[in-house]
Write a protein that binds this DNA or RNA. Structure first.
Length: 772
DNA sequence: GAGTTTGAAACT
DNA sequence: CAGTTTCAAACTC
């Protein structure tokens, strides 16, 4: 074994050397893997390890933490192809490290060689661990840690000015070379220092210890983070940093360590720290915050959340994140990093990455998490598609991960839903809650997560759809029969190719499934590119196009009995409002009604008789309804009223719930309703936090849209039309509908509050991923 | 199951 | 931005 290991190590080194010589790009790629191993192998590490008992463990924890960081950086700005390649290569390399086949390398530097050996061993171990079916955290952590370290070194010490590399990828790539350079020099210095008992070593050791200490907490946090890693978006990173204190501290500690090392190296190599740092800053906007220590590194403050635009990005990122996760889980192979990278900058282009085109990549990504794809699966992306979430019926069936590809994916601009409920289940949600929320994250995600899955039957595969596409009607019925309970979305599109919002599946962010009766459907994993492109287009026109149509004000709406549901709280409303003229908002033609919410000021409906609540003006007058009343199976108002009072806070929107069809439940007459004028009566918004439960949206009256309702809390800011900033307009493309700040004052406050909540919730994201 | 109605989405 | 067309769901028979 040892021999073998050595040989492999040698090979690695040789490779490394070669790469170094090679073009920068290449070298970066190839080097990454090596660097990782080196780091651990490095004398410094060894020394530290000897000093601290923690060795192995440390690496583990660290890894997770690190990952996010390393990955996170990739902002669109850096999306250069190189970077992407690097990333991918990075993972691959890891695997490669273990590969003995590599040509041996003889290095002049004895130390280095030794290091390499060690690394190779470590790497092997790591690989083995990874291989083990059970995802052992330790294994991963160790692995990650190595990476992490390497990255930092690169950044601080070795980063070449030229590199546009993202923090994560680029660093790694560079790291190899840099590390090589520095390592030799570094080692001696360290040793000397150690002998001297100099501060640097202490610092390092301390940092390690700190890492471990923090790691515990961090582990939990970071476990989820692994998911983030996948995304590698800077945003994620930030979110983590912000949200997770432990992580941050950990990160900081690491940095400090690195920095200390760096300093040492710098002495030797005389590298330009400042320059490197500058690069880092440019490349890694987010990290700046974290880095407190070394003056050089710190400087840059990551993008502040305060910036609305950034927020948007974050959210998007979150979505991506979710998507990614989803891809990883379900589509393992399917998820494409490329998309992420490509899209990273963009809002959410990714619909689903179903295809296995870049399986390697995906897998590569996966490694971080380790074998537990399942775990990932568990964590649905934060970013579930709101619609999807809302829509998802309670009954969700669990989809087999395997079938995932086929299974529908819920993806929204905002979020992705995890198809795999099986593992994840609600548990995830529960987990999530505890997690510290980061501002950015959206509550929605949490809620959404579990349900996210496509209600649709797992069995159905997109591929199969075609086959199944019998007569649309039949299918439709089928769906109906299936029950509202199942509430899977099934479309019946004939001319839109399921690439327009006309298509419920598409609108919900899910692929069409077997039950769909659509014709010439392009909303399938096979046409992922097309779907994504189309989606982007639509989003470009209307950023909220895929956002949930209905927002719920209160938390626990779900709980309310169907009968109770009578009124929808003011907070729960259709975002854009309806435009009904003939249906009186008493039929499903009306989106408000369908969604089980009352009409609001935003609505431009005529003769509104919405059982869930009339348009403001209408309400008062309304009493009406006699006819309506008769028609509606209105539940007792009294009950409703009570609810209403509560509503502001907890009361759930009266939406009819999920469990059954609303129709049955139609709520009371508008009379009772409180003034819904304010959509945002936001008071209702409240912070609620408990998601989980409700998170599962009960099946709407029908499956679909109804359920699209989401609590406002859940909704990401950007989605909220009311965004204070006006960033995104609620408004539909036609501004008419949207009433931005209706109540000027009232709204904004409400929104704000909701926003805050949202932000807090954000943190939960990670946890989601964590689950398992 | 066929046909009609409806209103959102898309287009101009 | 308003008006018109297209589309698919909802509904009716």
């Amino acid at each position: 074994m040892e021999d073998r290991v050595e040989s492999s190590a040698k090979e690695t080194t040789s490779k490394e050397v070669l790469e170094v010589m090679d073009t920068p790009e290449r070298s970066k790629n190839s080097q990454i893997a090596v660097s990782i191993s080196k780091f651990e192998d490095s004398p410094v590490f060894t020394f530290l390890n000897s000093l601290s008992p923690i060795k192995p463990v440390k690496s583990t924890h660290i890894t997770q933490t690190i990952n996010p960081l390393s990955f996170a950086s990739i902002p669109s700005v850096f999306t250069s192809p190189h970077v992407s390649s690097l990333r991918e290569s990075r993972f691959l390399r890891r695997h490669q490290l273990s590969d003995p086949s590599k040509p041996e390398f003889s290095s002049d530097d004895g130390i280095r060689v030794n290091t390499i050996k060690v690394n190779s061993d470590a790497t092997k171990k790591l690989n083995e661990q990874k291989e083990s079916a059970d995802d052992e955290v330790a294994a991963e952590t160790s692995y990650d840690c190595s990476k992490f370290v390497v990255d930092f070194d690169k950044d601080y010490e070795c980063a070449s000015p030229n590199s546009n590399l993202r923090p994560g990828c680029g660093l790694q790539a560079k790291g190899m070379t840099d590390y090589a350079c520095s390592s030799s020099a570094l080692v001696p210095l360290i040793q000397e220092a150690a002998q001297r008992g100099e501060v640097n070593m202490d610092v390092v050791t301390q940092t390690d210890q700190n890492k471990e200490s923090t790691s515990c907490d961090w582990d939990h946090l970071m476990s989820d983070a692994s998911d983030l890693l996948v995304f590698e978006s800077p945003d994620d990173r930030d979110s983590y940093n912000n949200s997770v204190d432990p992580g941050t501290s950990f990160y900081t500690s690491i940095k400090s360590d690195i920095q200390s090392l760096h300093l040492i190296c710098a002495v030797d190599s005389g590298e330009q720290v400042a320059g490197d740092e500058a690069e880092n800053l440019s490349t890694q906007p987010g990290e700046g915050n974290e880095m407190d220590n070394a003056g050089s590194s710190n400087a840059i403050a990551g993008p502040s959340l305060s910036n609305p635009d950034e927020k948007m990005d974050y959210e998007h990122l979150g979505f991506y994140r979710g998507m990614r996760r989803r891809c990883l889980v379900f589509e393992m192979g399917g998820a494409r990093r490329k998309h992420l990278e490509e899209n990273s900058g963009s809002d959410s282009s990714v619909w689903l990455h179903s295809d296995g085109n870049s399986p390697s990549n995906d897998q590569n990504l996966v490694p971080i998490n380790k074998g537990n794809d399942s775990s990932r699966c568990l964590l649905p992306g934060i970013g579930l598609h709101l619609n999807a979430l809302a829509t998802t019926p309670k009954d969700y069936k669990i989809v087999n991960p395997d079938s995932s590809a086929s299974a529908r994916l819920l993806i929204g601009p905002s979020s992705v839903v995890n198809l795999h409920p099986s593992t994840t289940g609600q548990g995830l949600l529960g987990n999530i809650l505890p997690v510290a929320p980061s501002d950015r994250e959206i509550d929605i995600t949490e809620n959404a997560v579990p349900p996210v899955e496509d209600a649709c039957p797992p069995s159905g595969y997109a591929a199969n759809e075609e086959i199944s596409q019998g007569s649309p009607k039949k299918k439709r019925r089928r769906g109906e029969q299936a029950g509202e309970g199942e509430a899977c979305k099934r479309c019946n599109c004939k001319r839109s190719k399921c690439l327009k919002l006309y298509c419920e599946c598409f609108a919900a962010g899910v692929y069409c499934v077997e039950p769909c009766a659509c014709i010439d459907c392009f909303n399938k994993p096979i046409h992922e590119d097309t779907v994504l492109a189309t989606r982007k287009q639509i989003e470009s026109r209307n950023p909220l196009a895929f956002a949930p149509k209905v927002i719920r004000g209160s938390d626990s709406p779900l709980e309310i009995g169907p009968d109770d549901s009578s009124k929808t709280p003011a907070s729960a409303r259709h975002k854009r409002g309806c435009n009904c003229k003939k249906s009186g908002c008493l039929k499903k033609y009306c989106e408000c009604y369908q969604g089980g919410v009352g009409c609001s000021v935003n609505c431009r409906c005529e003769g509104c008789k919405n059982a869930f609540g009339r348009k403001d003006g209408m309400e008062a007058e309304a009493e009406e309804d006699e006819t309506d009343a008769a028609e509606k199976s209105i539940p007792d108002k009294s009950a409703v009223e009570n609810d209403v009072g509560q509503n502001t806070d907890s009361a759930p929107p009266a939406t009819p719930l999920r469990g059954g069809r609303q129709s049955a439940q139609l709520p009371f007459s508008s009379k009772k309703k409180p003034p819904r004028s304010s959509f945002p009566s936001s008071s209702s918004f409240l912070p609620k936090q408990g998601f989980g439960k409700s998170s599962f949206f009960p099946p709407p009256p029908k499956f679909d849209k109804q359920f699209e309702t989401i609590r406002e809390d859940e909704i990401p800011e950007f989605l909220q039309g009311g965004s204070p900033d006006g960033g995104i307009k609620l408004s539909s493309p036609n501004r008419k509908r949207v009433s931005p700040p209706h109540n000027g004052g009232a709204m904004s406050p409400g929104l704000r509050s909701s926003r805050k909540l949202i932000l807090q919730s954000i943190p939960s994201f990670p946890s989601l991923t964590h689950n398992q």
